[in-house]
Amino acid sequence: MREKYVLAEITSDLLPLKAVKAKHNHARLVQICSVNTATGYDLLYSFAEGYNFVNYKVAIKENEAVPSISDIYPSAALYENEIRELFGVNVQYINLDYHEKLYNIDKETPFKTKPAQAPEKPKFTPEQIEAMKKAAAAKKAAAKAAREAEGGKA
């Protein structure tokens, strides 16, 4: 048997409607996942209707609010708490809200990709490096001359 696979792109305001429809079709909510994009997040909601696999992709901007579907599917609450805590997605009206206390992680959450840091300022300027090289060469030459002079005496 091959599954029927659907991936539809929808807007966030249509999400509760799609969830109600899925519930009406006796579908199971199997996962919610978040993907970081350049402008915000792609949220993927997956429902299994028997063996068929129906997915909705909701593209949202960085701070855009998304309604929770936990009143329709109670199992959504855990996923929504997860994406809010670890990704920083602004999910509103979760019926079982753990207030960013589901994960016990030492590092600061949500995890954000750090902005590219400016390269470190070099310790010495090229002129200083050149001068240091010259000084080292002169020191080496002086040491060699001293060794030769000592050898001559011996």
């Binding site: 753990y98 206390k101 589901l102 994960y103 016990n104 992680i105």
Partner: peptide
């Protein structure tokens, strides 16, 4: 029952 996970994240 209130869960807390993430000890081995």
């Amino acid at each position: 029952a209130v869960p807390k996970i993430g000890y081995i994240h």
